[in-house]
Simulated assay, not measured.
Amino acid sequence: MRQEVQDCHLEMDEMHDQFREDEAIEFREMQKDLEATAKNCRILQFKLRKMERRN
């Protein structure tokens, strides 16, 4: 019985570790997306200022 409980605890720990790893991967992907969006925003702002000066 004790061995089964220990096995269950180990399995739960492994699941938590996998969950944290998945969250970390998702966070890094979201960070990359945010950086790309911020870059596109800066480009569009630059183009807008350029068009405003032209007009």
Rank of each mutant, 00 (worst) to 15 (best):
M1T: 01
M1H: 10
M1D: 12
M1F: 14
R2W: 07
Q3Y: 03
Q3T: 10
E4I: 00
E4T: 08
V5G: 00
V5R: 14
V5A: 10
V5Y: 12
Q6N: 03
Q6L: 05
D7H: 05
D7V: 08
C8Q: 15
C8F: 15
H9D: 10
L10G: 03
L10E: 10
E11T: 08
E11R: 13
M12P: 00
M12F: 10
D13C: 04
D13L: 14
D13I: 10
D13Y: 02
E14K: 13
M15N: 13
H16E: 15
H16K: 14
D17V: 10
D17N: 09
D17K: 14
D17E: 12
Q18R: 08
F19C: 14
F19M: 15
E21W: 02
E21G: 00
E21H: 02
E21Q: 09
D22A: 11
D22L: 15
D22G: 08
A24M: 01
A24P: 02
A24R: 05
A24G: 03
I25N: 04
I25E: 09
E26H: 11
E26Q: 13
F27M: 14
R28A: 10
R28C: 03
E29G: 02
Q31M: 05
Q31P: 00
K32V: 11
K32P: 02
K32M: 13
D33H: 12
D33R: 11
L34T: 07
L34K: 00
L34R: 04
L34Y: 09
E35Q: 03
E35G: 00
E35N: 07
E35W: 00
A36L: 10
A36I: 00
A36M: 11
A36Q: 08
A38K: 14
K39H: 06
K39V: 05
K39W: 12
N40S: 10
N40P: 01
N40T: 06
C41W: 09
R42A: 12
R42I: 09
I43S: 06
I43G: 05
I43W: 06
I43C: 04
L44Q: 08
Q45G: 03
Q45A: 09
F46G: 15
K47D: 03
K47L: 07
K47M: 06
K47W: 03
K47T: 04
L48C: 04
L48A: 02
R49Y: 00
K50S: 04
K50H: 09
M51D: 12
E52P: 04
E52H: 03
E52Y: 01
R53G: 02
R54M: 06
R54F: 09
R54E: 07
N55T: 13
N55D: 08
N55R: 13
